[in-house]
Design a protein around this nucleic acid. Structure first.
Length: 717
DNA sequence: ATATAGAATCTTTTT
DNA sequence: GATTCTATAT
């Protein structure tokens, strides 16, 4: 068989990784060095050349998008459907394993997945029921605590609290929350992983089964793995014949704050003694862009070492624009996009990247004014929208009345007169008699000790759910969804409560949900695992909340955070808001170790650019309703002068504008002032306005000081 | 039980 | 400044 198409167009390093015929492998893949390509070709090589059964290959990614792309490209290369091959996200794979062995994992076979929003509600309810102060134990923080412990593979019994009462209390919440999950048959995202690891750890037979099956385990974005994910890899790789092939880039590790451990790359080297292959040839960016990115990341001292190079053209210098304020910055960016479009290029070739989501608004407005189509990444996805979740809550309750999280969500949405007091009574009964809320409701109705109003309201609710349940058997999923929406009057609920446009959008989403249910196709795996159509649908909604909302890709300018830009590329890239405090973010500057992650973020952002890269910052910016004066990001300063072109040098601007700015009584940024006690100095920062403004001055003799405008007497020098 | 005003918050995100 | 949650009044 001719297999040249698998290796012909690869470079030496790529080919070495793809064809490696023994042992484990670590591919250190720089940005734009063709890492997905290597993974895909590797899988094809194993199957076509080494005649490995597709059943023996497990490929794991972090996102559904990456998994789908990988599957698509493998099929394209092999020209056959990739059945038997396990490609999926960590959570997807774990979910599958748990479905197949729910009994051994001590799980109800009908368990459902609890997504973050429901998890938050359940944590909050747990805290309230334990009569703890939500101020002292903010649900968001507790949720983070629980997830972080789970991501580290730790159960309540094994948490070291060292007698710290706060920690001990958190542990109790974790314990109680977990109990509630068990009772309701709910599994949160972290639990999917933890249960799987425990299942394999405690069932040697099961473990051996998977170890024997998966001769090849491949992991994408290895630098993003957390403790638990690495534990899973180690378990699966415990088989004598298992070969592990991981791909990653320590310079692109930007998820440390959510538990990712870059150290896993180093651990992998120690634990597995892999062949290390470096992919350092970049096929994406110009030499200038690459060199600039290299110089920035060079300021990190915790690197494994890697230097990207390219055969590409020198290209244009990296352009730096210093804007007067954030509006001017947006105008500038849009102006350059217009130039780009006028030169005949596409909107979709443009990426506008920023550190935080709040920055998108300015660019949206400016693009809207200029009539340029754009798309903002991030925000709520289809299955995360409140109306969709409300409707699905009913479906969940109909499907499994034990689902307390679903019960709480829908019991009074739309409002039907079941208030906080009534529900509290239900919780009380449920806790006292160890029942689900649903059973507690029926018990109370039967006991007949409810007041008239609550009795009627609860009775109507129970009747509604029961009648839906009775019809579930002979109604398909789409029909069921339709019935739920119609009988619950959800649409009217939104119409009555919200402005018309908002409510209409919700209505459209509910229509879309019906359509999604109608056209839902159960996967073979789910069917084999014995899942009902409904369970399958609910699982998909939780596990792939994503881009269901139609493939309206269109030709749009792409607006997104630096984090969501990872893995993407654009001919033209803008990195906006390059200011100290914003990027690197203030909070990252304050915490040790976080700064190098911010720098990696800058590196990720810069290496998205193929042809042209702009960095911009604003001298003043309205943030949280206050005008802030910042200095350019240190990352801008780390660029070598010969690679950049200042579009408007900051110094000239400050001087030119000095008279205008000082009109309000505040000294201009960069201007020279004299203080009675501290002597002469340069204004570094001005925060706020009027008498309350805080001014930072670098005094020639006394050093840097913060002064309050109302008290300090400053004279222009 | 619900409507409204006031307060608190304001990195990054996938599953 | 905008949003989102919470406390209070009706």
């Amino acid at each position: 068989m001719d297999v040249s198409h698998l290796i012909d167009d690869l470079n030496d390093a790529q080919r070495q990784a793809v064809t490696l015929d023994d042992g484990h492998c670590l591919v250190l893949a720089g940005a734009g060095s063709g890492k997905t390509r290597v993974l895909v070709h590797r899988i094809a090589w194993l199957i076509q050349v080494e005649h490995v059964s597709p059943m023996a290959v497990l490929a794991v990614t972090f996102t559904n998008k990456a998994a789908n792309e990988m599957r698509g490209r493998v099929e394209e290369l092999l020209q056959i459907p990739s059945s038997g091959l396990w490609i999926g996200t960590f959570h997807g794979i774990c979910h599958r394993i748990l479905r197949l062995h729910s009994a051994e994992a001590n799980l109800n076979p009908t368990f459902q997945i609890l997504d973050s929003d429901d998890q938050y509600r359940l944590v909050r309810r747990t805290i309230r029921e334990m009569q703890l102060d939500e101020g002292e134990f903010p649900p968001r923080v507790v949720q983070g605590f629980i997830n972080a412990r789970k991501d580290d593979g730790v159960r309540p019994d094994h948490i070291e609290h060292n007698g710290n009462p706060l920690t001990m209390q958190m542990v109790e919440i974790y314990r109680t929350y977990q109990g509630a999950c068990e009772r309701s048959g709910l599994v949160d995202f972290a639990e999917l992983m933890l249960r799987t690891v425990e299942l394999l750890r405690d069932n040697p037979n099961r473990l051996r089964h998977y170890q024997d099956r998966f001769a090849h385990v491949m992991i994408d974005e290895f630098q993003d793995t957390n403790t638990l994910q690495y534990a899973l890899v180690k378990l699966l790789a415990g088989g004598a014949k298992t070969r592990v092939f991981v791909v990653g880039d320590d310079d692109q590790s930007i998820y440390g704050w959510r538990g990712a451990r870059v150290e896993n790359v180093q651990h992998f080297v120690e634990d597995f003694k892999p062949e290390i292959v470096r992919l350092e040839q970049n096929y994406r960016s110009t030499r200038t862009i690459l060199e600039a990115a290299n110089r920035v990341i060079d300021h990190n001292d915790d690197r494994m070492g890697k230097n990207l190079w390219t055969q590409g053209e020198q290209g244009e210098p990296v352009r730096i624009f210093s804007a007067y304020n954030e509006d001017e910055e947006a105008e500038f960016v849009v102006g350059r996009i217009q130039d780009w479009l006028e030169s005949g290029r596409n909107p979709s070739g443009v990426g506008v990247l920023y550190r935080s989501n709040a920055q998108s608004r300015l660019f949206e407005q400016a693009l809207l004014r200029a009539d340029i189509p754009y798309r903002v990444y991030g925000g709520l996805r289809f299955f995360e929208r409140a109306e969709v979740r409300d409707a699905l809550g009913y479906l969940r309750l109909v499907h499994n009345p034990m689902d307390d999280a679903a019960f709480e969500r829908v019991v009074n949405v739309p409002a039907r007169g079941i208030g906080e007091r009534t529900v509290a009574g239900l919780r009380e009964t449920a806790r006292a008699e160890d029942l689900s809320l649903w059973d507690a409701t029926r018990r109370q109705l039967a006991a007949g000790n409810l007041t008239g109003r609550a009795r009627n309201a609860l009775g109507a609710f129970v009747e509604l759910i029961e009648s839906l349940r009775a019809e579930a058997g002979e109604t398909d999923l789409g029909g069921m969804m339709q019935k739920i929406i119609r009988r619950t009057d959800l649409i009217q609920h939104y119409l009555a409560r919200e402005p018309a446009d908002r409510a209409e959008a919700r209505q459209e989403n509910l229509d879309e949900l019906v359509r999604a249910a109608e056209s839902f196709d159960q996967s073979m795996e789910d069917e084999q695992a014995g899942l009902s159509m409904t369970a399958s649908f609910l699982t998909q909604a939780a596990l792939e909340a994503g881009e269901h909302q139609g493939e309206k890709w269109q030709d749009c300018v792409q607006l997104m955070t630096l984090h969501s830009a990872k893995g993407l590329e654009f001919p033209l890239v803008f990195l906006a808001g390059m200011e100290e405090g914003l990027f690197p973010h203030q909070k990252s500057v304050e915490e040790p170790g976080r700064l190098s992650e911010e720098r990696r973020l800058a590196y990720v952002g810069m290496t998205r650019a193929m042809e042209l890269l702009y960095l911009s910052y604003a001298e003043s910016r309205r943030l949280h309703g206050q005008t802030m004066f910042g200095r350019p990001s240190r990352f801008v300063g780390e660029l070598p002068p010969e690679l950049i072109e200042d579009i408007r040098p900051q110094l000239n601007v400050s001087q030119a504008r000095a008279p205008r700015d000082s009109g309000g009584g505040l000294p201009a940024l960069g201007s020279r002032v004299r203080h009675a006690k501290f002597g002469a100095g340069t204004v570094l920062t001005v925060e706020g306005q009027g008498e309350n403004a805080r001014i930072q001055i670098n005094f020639d003799d006394a050093g840097q000081k913060w002064l309050v405008a109302g008290y300090a007497t400053l004279e222009p020098e």
